[in-house]
Design a protein around this nucleic acid. Structure first.
Lengths: 210, 210
DNA sequence: CTTCTTCTGGACTTGCTAGTCCATTTTTAG
DNA sequence: CTAAAAATGGACTAGCAAGTCCAGAAGAAG
């Protein structure tokens, strides 16, 4: 059983490991580094994570996955107006510009092995939730007639999740958010222009126009 | 100086390392594994790659980056008809379905450190070339009036590169190509529908329609 | 032929890191 | 109060992998 103190220590280890990984990368982060940073010792580490490094990394990955969604709130769960979509877009760009070239989650998943069931579960939950929120947003805009009803909300949401993911990947490789912004703006332009096809209820942006 | 034999050995090491990495991942690939597989020894390795592991990995990454573009040919450099676009889309999906959850290049770049100038150079060249080809394709379709002339070809090409990248990333995490296909189809739908807005020269796909 | 360079092989060193173990302190609970 | 359970600290081990070194074979050059 865990006491309150034990729970706190466990959490401190996860947080410290997450911070260390954000600072220096997964490969360069040793268990000793984590111990040093969190004022704990190997004994603790294996006490709370009998599975060792792998189990700790998984716990960190799970934590980071939550943060990804948290950082997009409250916009992501209320995509009911074009204004909200724009705010969401800005939040995503801002979040990843801040993060820069370090993507703790991506690297963690890589390290854990993408094929691992546990790692797939973490990414699956993240992508699923993200896509669900986008889909709900698209559906609600469709109900108001601001996005063409003929659009397949599920597929479109999947496309946007992928687009954002790719923009982030490129940002991490190049340090530039240009692709992320281009892909988000193009996605929004697509959604808006779909309504134009059907009827002029929407306010198109000039994002991708010359 | 390198003799013909030396060059061949060097290449054999790169190819063997690439194969080993594709099979088992970067982290799990040791220099001894590479030596074993290529019938060489540590002596060779440091003879041809004085920079050690890092230099070897960089050489492998460069090789893999070329393959990514090669595998999309001849379609990628001739995106002048909707048929060619569709063939390109199919080639991309097929290539990555084959590859499955292993992305040698992505993992290599991760391992080398995304911030490293050398790694950024490799990814930068790859993304740049890819985007240029897409942009040329869009421009040529615009000249024929099959894509709306008002579209910003550069930004749109950037958005598509990002989208594909994201679809691939998700494929690697989940093993499903659904997102990759969704994002490619949505991108093509977007291009086609842009022409519809302007004038009915294009043949829209039903990809994203219900 | 012979001399110099390049190529090849593998044994060895060095350093690091995950994981183990156990002794000690603190907390919980009856 | 006391005994059991949980938390803590750190020294220790084992194994692995990167990188070094050197001796000898093969090949080019004159």
């Amino acid at each position: 059983m865990l006491t309150a103190k034990g729970t706190a220590t466990r959490q401190r280890i996860i947080d410290g490991a997450a911070a260390e990984i954000r600072d220096r990368g997964v490969a360069a982060t040793t268990l000793d580094d984590v111990c040093g940073r969190t004022a704990t010792s190997k004994g603790h580490l294996f006490h709370y994570f009998p599975g060792g490094r792998e189990q700790l990394l998984l716990a960190v990955a799970d934590r980071e996955a939550w943060r990804v969604l948290e950082d997009q709130q409250p916009h992501l769960s209320r995509l009911t107006t074009w204004h909200a979509w724009q705010a969401w877009r800005d939040a995503v760009v801002h979040r990843y510009q801040q993060q820069g070239v370090h993507c703790p989650l991506g690297v963690l998943i890589t390290e854990l092995g993408r094929g691992t069931p546990a790692a797939q579960a973490v990414t699956g939950r993240l992508i699923g939730q993200w896509q669900d929120d986008l889909q709900a947003g698209i559906a609600s805009m469709q109900q108001r007639g601001q996005i063409a009803g003929e659009l397949n909300a599920e597929r479109t949401a999947a496309a946007i999740v992928a687009a954002v993911q790719g923009g982030v990947t490129i940002l991490m490789s190049t340090g530039s958010s240009a692709h992320l912004e281009a892909t988000l703006d193009t996605a929004l332009l697509f959604l808006k222009s779909s309504a134009l096809d059907a009827g002029p209820d929407a306010t198109p942006s000039e994002g991708n126009r010359k």
